[in-house]
């Protein structure tokens, strides 16, 4: 739930999703759900020569389970707020 809320705060930011098959897709985060499935608009693939089949694709839905990393700008994240929320969540779900 915490990470889901974290991604919701990143809505309309430009992020890069790195998949487990090494494909890197940069685009604007439009929505995310509880499985961390991600919808991206206006996408660009990092190495288009290696992935020519992606050239015509503009919008994608990415299944959460194929994601390895999501890269974002540091200024898009309030780290103190994030740590406090993590402590609160650990306290509530833990015991």
């Amino acid at each position: 739930m915490l990470i889901f809320s974290f991604f919701k705060t990143l809505t309309d930011q430009v992020i890069t999703v790195e998949l487990k098959n090494d494909l890197c897709i940069t685009g604007t985060l439009k929505s995310v759900d509880q499985f961390l499935n991600i919808r991206l608009d206006g996408i660009r693939v990092e190495d288009p020569e290696r992935h020519p089949h992606m050239l015509a694709v503009k919008n994608v839905f990415i299944r959460g389970s194929v994601v390895r990393y999501v890269r974002m700008a540091a200024r898009a994240v309030d780290t103190t707020l994030l740590e406090d929320a993590t402590r609160r969540e650990a306290h509530n779900t833990g015991k």
């Binding site: 990470i3 990393y69 999501v70 890269r71 974002m72 700008a73 994240v77």
Partner: peptide, 11 residues
């Protein structure tokens, strides 16, 4: 090097 990164737990 990356400035901010989310890492999925299954990896």
């Amino acid at each position: 090097s990356l400035e901010m990164l989310f890492v999925r737990g299954d990896g």
